[in-house]
Amino acid sequence: MPPSASQVAVHAEALVKTYGSTRALDGVDLEIRSGTVLGLLGPNGAGKTTTVRILTTLLKPDSGRAFVAGHDVLADPAAVRRSIGLSGQYAAVDENLTGYENLYMVGRLYGMSRSDSGARARALLDRFRLKDAAERPAKTYSGGMRRRLDLAGALVAEPTVVVLDEPTTGLDPRGRLDTWEVIGELVADGATVLLTTQYLEEADQLADNILVIDHGKVIAGGTPDQLKNGVGGERIEVVVGEAGEVEKARQILFSLGSGEPTVDDHQRRVSVKVDTGPKALVEALRRLDQEGISILDVALHRPTLDDVFLSLTGHAAEEAVEPEPKGRKSKKGAS
């Protein structure tokens, strides 16, 4: 039997789903403790959305079982629906309804009374900074506002478990930050959240635990720190001033590091895993300087989830180009 619902909000065992000859899910187990955020991380087509659809009763697994808030998704889907709030990949707001009407409608469909639905809609619009736009049709909203409205829709019935399926896909950086802030508040309030994302930074920022999934299988799990430590070691990253200096920098870093440096010719960036941390950095700087190589940027950082992903799957996560490397860099430096 599943552990009691008071500690474990979501519990899934050996979920399998096939489409023709494709095994979209090939035996996925997962568990989310109450009040924590699980980030389900993986490239497009890894099986994230299929997992979400099974846990939210939209799809039946071929085999395996799952419990959400103590209810069996197969035996008692209606009880599961009463306990969850889903915000999907695309903001499923009705464009012709106002923000208020959208939330009011969801409240009514959860079975709330007219007055409760109205009050709840007002409170959520307030909380999601949509009060001024409450009476405008949602088609006039920006992408970030729509997402916020969609998130608010998932919270109307104060669900035990909130499921956010790629909540920032397709948003511009401003909208993404906006959405993160809202999810951050949600988490601070103690909600249990299942979050799927292909953005490593998003999982890093928001999730207590991360499950990395690829080709329908869980390939790693743990806290962001555990995953990063699992990759081991720190990395030195150098950006040189001229294209001709890249190869020389690569040779220097190769001699200091443990392993083959990775080179990005376009950005003139060379990085390598090192075992001795700051000492290796000092040595690298000395030798680069000796060779007269112009250095634009240099950093020593712990592995990022990008590195974790790369080492686990052998390929980078889908969105390697975003968010902007610059923002990520400064965060790495701080960690």
Binding site: T56, T57, R81, G88
Partner: peptide, 17 residues
């Protein structure tokens, strides 16, 4: 297409509604 049906289906509402 817009995902509105997904949202409706995830709500505890009657199936034919």
């Amino acid at each position: 297409e817009k995902g509105v049906i997904d949202r409706f289906r995830s709500l505890p509402m009657s199936r034919g509604a």
